[in-house]
Design a protein around this nucleic acid. Structure first.
Length: 269
DNA sequence: GGGTACCTGAAA
DNA sequence: TTTCAGGTACCC
C-alpha cells in the first residue's frame, strides 16, 4: 500500500493509536533491515505519527529529547497495530519487525523484504528532497518551475522523488488521465494550460484518494489494518482494453522504464 | 537518463 | 513455467 495516499492513511490511523504510548521492546526480525538502532528508542514515548514523502515517520522522545524512526513500506510493507489483549496472529509469516508498546504492539510485515527502517535525530535526515504535492509550496508556478527544462517523459518525471515526493505508478497514471496529458509528452514542453490542469489533477486525485483511504487491490482486511476504496475511482490504471470512463475508447497500456503506463489515447494529448 | 538488481507470491 | 507487481539504489 505504498504511495502517498496509502502512507498518509497509515500514518493517520496509527497516530491516535500510538500517541502517548511508551516503547518497551523493539526487535528486528530480518537481517535485510540492517542494524538501525531501534533498541535505543526503548523507553521513549511516541509523540506523533506522520507522513514524510512515502515514509511513515514516528517522533518519539524521552526527557524532552526527540528522536525519529522512519519506515518505508516500498512495495509490500504493512504496519499493523495490535491491541494488547489480542493474541498474536498464528500466522507470523513475513513479520519483519515488532515493536511492543504499552497496551499493544506495532507489527511490520513485508513479504518482498524491500522495506526499510531508519532511526535518526532529525526529520531532515529522513526527508526525501522533493516537494510534497499537497503542500502550499506547490503552486502552479512552482510546478512549472520544477518542470522547466526537463526532456524526460512526464510519466517518468512524476515518479522522480527528487522533484515531487509521494507519487507512484498508480497515481502518476491517474493524475495524467485526469489532467488530459499524454504520458510520453516531454515534461519541460507542457504548455501553461497543461501545467495548470496537471496541478489541479495532483490535488484532486490525491485528496480524493486520501478521503478513500487509498487504493487496495488484494482485498484483505484486518482489524486495524488498512483497506482503501479508491480503486473504485480509478479511470485507467489496470484497465487495459476497458472503455475509458470519459470517452469510451479502449484504455491502452504501454511500458515506460520497465513499468506499465495506462492511458486513454482519446482523452490524453 | 535508461537498464538491472533486489525479493516473494499471485496470476496467467 | 513465465510474467507481473503499489519502489528505489546503483550501474554505465
Amino acid at each position: 500500500m505504498p504511495e502517498l495516499p496509502e502512507v498518509e492513511t497509515v500514518a493517520r490511523q496509527l497516530e491516535p493509536l500510538l500517541s502517548g504510548r511508551r516503547l518497551r521492546r523493539a526487535r528486528l526480525l530480518d537481517r535485510r533491515l540492517g542494524t538501525p538502532p531501534v533498541a535505543s528508542l526503548v523507553g521513549h514515548q511516541v509523540e506523533r505519527v506522520f507522513r514524510l514523502g512515502k515514509q511513515v515517520a514516528f517522533e518519539l522522545s524521552r526527557r524532552g529529547r526527540p528522536r525519529f524512526m522512519a519506515v518505508h513500506l516500498r512495495m509490500t510493507g504493512r504496519l499493523i497495530w495490535q491491541d494488547g489483549r489480542r493474541r498474536s496472529p498464528p500466522d507470523h509469516k513475513h513479520l519483519r519487525a515488532r515493536f511492543d508498546l504499552d497496551g499493544g504492539r506495532l507489527l511490520f510485515f513485508d513479504p518482498r523484504r524491500f522495506g526499510t527502517i531508519a532511526v535518526v535525530d532529525t526529520p531532515e535526515e529522513i526527508a526525501p528532497c522533493g516537494v510534497d504535492p499537497l503542500s502550499a509550496e506547490l503552486t502552479p508556478g512552482a510546478l512549472a518551475g520544477l518542470l522547466r527544462g526537463s526532456r524526460q517523459a512526464i510519466k517518468a518525471w512524476l515518479l522522480r522523488q527528487d522533484r515531487l515526493v509521494g507519487l507512484g505508478n498508480i497515481y502518476a497514471c491517474e493524475i495524467l488521465f485526469r489532467a488530459g496529458v499524454a504520458p510520453d509528452r516531454a515534461a519541460g514542453r507542457l504548455r501553461r494550460t497543461d501545467v495548470e490542469r496537471l496541478h489541479r489533477a495532483l490535488r484532486d486525485v490525491l485528496t480524493r484518494a486520501i478521503e478513500s483511504c487509498g487504493t487496495t487491490f488484494s482485498d484483505f482486511q484486518d482489524a486495524r489494518g488498512v483497506s482503501g476504496s479508491y480503486q473504485r475511482y480509478l479511470g485507467v490504471y489496470a484497465r487495459e482494453g476497458e472503455p475509458c470512463p470519459a470517452c469510451g475508447r479502449p484504455v491502452r497500456r504501454i511500458v515506460q522504464q520497465q513499468r506499465s503506463t495506462f492511458y486513454c489515447p482519446g482523452c490524453q494529448r
